[in-house]
Design a protein around this nucleic acid. Sequence first.
DNA 1: TGTTGACATTAACGTTACGTCATAGTTTAT
DNA 2: ATAAACTATGACGTAACGTTAATGTCAACA
Lengths: 251, 251
Amino acid sequence: MEYTINKLAKMAGVSTRTLRFYDEIGLLTPARISSNGYRIYGPKETDRLQQILFYRELGVPLEEIKKILSSDDFDELAALESHLSAMLARRNQLDLLIANVEKTIRAAKGEMIMSDMEKFEGFKKKLVDENEQKYGREIREKYGDEAVDRSNAKFMGMSREQYAEFEKLTAEFHETLKAAYEQGDPAGELAQKACELHKKWLCFSWGEYSREAHIGVTQMYVEDPRFTAYFDRIAPGCAPFLRDAVQIYCR
Amino acid sequence: MEYTINKLAKMAGVSTRTLRFYDEIGLLTPARISSNGYRIYGPKETDRLQQILFYRELGVPLEEIKKILSSDDFDELAALESHLSAMLARRNQLDLLIANVEKTIRAAKGEMIMSDMEKFEGFKKKLVDENEQKYGREIREKYGDEAVDRSNAKFMGMSREQYAEFEKLTAEFHETLKAAYEQGDPAGELAQKACELHKKWLCFSWGEYSREAHIGVTQMYVEDPRFTAYFDRIAPGCAPFLRDAVQIYCR
DNA sequence: TGTTGACATTAACGTTACGTCATAGTTTAT
DNA sequence: ATAAACTATGACGTAACGTTAATGTCAACA
């Protein structure tokens, strides 16, 4: 089935200006130009527009979309599965924000106290994770870690070097925590070093560091299954260990 | 608690450039400027930034956000509840897109056939509903229907007049369908008029009209609970009636 | 105290993804 | 035949920042 520009635009929920722009930048070229000079779009273009809109929905810049769709090894099914994964993640992040609004409503009603940091729960993590999902593994493999890391760094307001430092610190913290946990002494030198690294790690995002908050966040790691699962991937069961170590560190 | 610009930016997941820009446009003014010329943000500004980010998350333009937050009758609790409502709707719309991706995956695997129109399910409706949720009732009441309708029309690629016509047609179709259903004759003059109006209504979004598609979409109204619920609000049980009438109309 | 790196300022240019308007040719419906 | 709808290209403008340059201030360390 073929469409003129207005028909396709209406069906897809975009403007004709958008479609002309996409033609102009080579993102979506019509199947042919009819004798009167009109753009005619076919089934191939219709499907391509759908893919474009999925990527656009996920916030992928148009130039990136163009690269992805135009590469020789573009795999439609893999892309669709990647969109599904990204959209499910988007929904999870939206859940975080919904929880934040709900919590803020309760705070506004005086039912609870909310820290300044909690007030922004979901915005920052959303940014980093959103970016990761937008690009996904497919993009990392295609364009390399550098492009993705640069983008992540941008979102976190860091330079590329700072971000690399952050990642290095993360890795060091994980290694040290694992080693300390295997050693088994929360008061030991290794565990206290892990606490120091954890403090540095936290300070990459926190506006203010406090001992109470440090203790509190490690308690949260134990109580919230999402965080426990995160730490279980470092070493199963190490979240309570970290909490114990931090309690000693902060005393 | 007070923050300098970098501290607040980091905590909130925005750039310092963003905060300076917001200061420049009067959206978020620091609590004070310290003796060295630095911006200092306090609790009031922290809360305001949270509200800004919620609105931004919902796609509200910054100038609109500024108007909303600065009006004398801004009600924080009501705004938060509006955000919650909007975000729940966003999640619902995301569900539509997720369903679309899943369906497209099945189509790509050859498990089903998908119409061109179905391929864009969720994009167009999302746009209109997203806009409605962004502004919500609060905004309609504050700035009037005109601003919202203008915005809706923009999203649907229609002029304001076309959009008004569309809404009028929608209302007429609903009234006629209700009346025809109460009359009870799918072949009757009133029912066939409803079918004609329904055809016009569909043609506002469809690139191509066909009798088969018309019959098919009314069948979908009967089979898909979301659509049945939509039509039940017009008159309970009228979706099968419309299907029967359209089958006669298209014969 | 001096030095260096981090933090902060303002100014200004650039980017992305279109929206809007003007002008003019083509198609469709009456 | 005529008017309305559809289509084209060209061009200016916009929102929301990102990036870079130049420079002052603060904090930590030797």
